[in-house]
């Protein structure tokens, strides 16, 4: 059983992440009702919210330090929060503001925070190879840092995932792959895209440790992830984890989920890891007042981040031309055309 401080940290990260997604949902829908128009309102573009995924990120990241690397997929907010990404600047990025983590260039699927070694990719499974690379660097430099790649259960049918497992196992690299199994890849249920129900079984083909956490329970995730990360830190190689999570919202905002049976949506809504962890905390002697305080603090932090982000300036158009390279070449080439 994880210690009480870790449990409280996990709870706080989960409550923060849930509040965050619910508030972003509200903000995103401003200007998009009654007719949904992806280009209307204060938050531009697509938005993939992770309500129902919190236990996985919280249970894994509680074992990580700032120096450890995390790569996240297109659904990154809960992971970023658990990894300690700057919430204000991340929110400003999602609102497309100049003071965002990436000056408004990246957006919600492309959040980068080198201060805590966090990165994303919107291309399915393509966070796996860079996580392997970070682990390779840690091994070469003789540190005990680790790398963690998060991905969805739909993503594990992608070639880059298998190539990463093999490389990681072959070189006994300090990397953990975490599959968040929410049973859906947009409209495709898991059973339509693979006959292997337990994704962690794929580890066997690479002589790698593999475990599946069947219940959406932060404590269970924390225990299994603790072993995996410990193994990586001690030089005993990679692990493949699969964690049962749930999808409380559509794949992206605006997804009417016509393909999804109502009973499935209801089941996912019922299996909520947050009250479950609250019950555990109560059992461990945390008072209702303590829980309320954590919740209030988390909500305040989210609300402040959103208010701050909305007050930030938008970038000027010309800023689009900066940052292609770290040291831009001379404008002389362009002047030749004038």
């Amino acid at each position: 059983m994880p210690n009480i401080e870790d449990l409280k940290t996990m709870y706080e990260n989960m409550v923060t992440a849930r509040r965050y997604e619910e508030r972003l949902q509200q903000e995103y829908l401003v200007g998009k009702q009654p007719q949904f128009d992806i280009s209307a309102g204060p938050i531009p573009g697509e938005l993939h919210l992770a309500a129902g995924h919190e236990a996985s990120a919280a249970g894994v990241c509680v074992h990580l330090r700032a120096e450890d690397t995390v790569t996240a997929p297109h659904r990154p907010h809960h992971i970023a929060i658990a990894k300690g990404v700057d919430l204000k600047r991340m929110t400003a990025e999602i609102f497309g503001r100049a003071t965002g983590l990436c000056k408004g260039k990246g957006g919600h699927m492309h959040l980068y925070d080198p201060a805590v070694n966090f990165a994303c990719s919107g291309i399915i499974a393509q966070g796996c190879p860079p996580a392997v690379g970070a682990a390779l660097a840690y091994k070469k430099r003789n540190t005990d840092n680790v790398a963690v790649a998060f991905l969805g259960e739909g993503a594990i049918n992608q070639g880059g995932f298998f190539e990463s497992l093999n490389l990681a196992a072959l070189h006994r690299l300090p990397v953990v792959f975490v599959i968040e199994d929410n049973e859906w890849a947009i409209s495709m249920p898991k059973s339509r895209v693979t006959d292997v129900a337990d994704g962690s079984k794929r580890a066997q083909g690479f002589k790698m440790a593999g475990t599946r956490v069947d219940v959406d329970d932060a404590v269970a995730v924390c225990e299994v992830a603790g072993e995996a990360i410990g193994r990586a830190r001690n030089g005993n190689g990679p692990t493949l984890l699969e964690v049962q999570v749930h999808r409380r919202m559509g794949h992206f905002m605006g997804d009417a989920e016509a393909y999804r049976p109502a009973v499935d949506r209801e089941r996912h809504a019922r299996l909520d890891p947050i009250p479950r962890l609250a019950v555990e905390l109560r059992k461990q002697g945390v008072t209702p007042g303590d829980l309320k305080e954590i919740e209030a603090r988390s909500h305040r932090r989210v609300d402040e981040a959103i208010a701050w982000a909305k007050a930030q300036p938008e970038p000027a158009g010309e800023e689009a031309l900066q940052d292609v390279f770290t040291n831009p070449f001379s404008a002389r080439n362009e002047e030749a055309l004038a």
Binding site: P44, G45, G104, K105, E314, P315, E319, A320
Partner: peptide
């Protein structure tokens, strides 16, 4: 203009 497509509206419009 030979840059990846940026996210924020003023940048993409530019």
């Amino acid at each position: 203009p030979d840059v990846p497509i940026p996210y924020a509206r003023p940048l993409e419009t530019y």
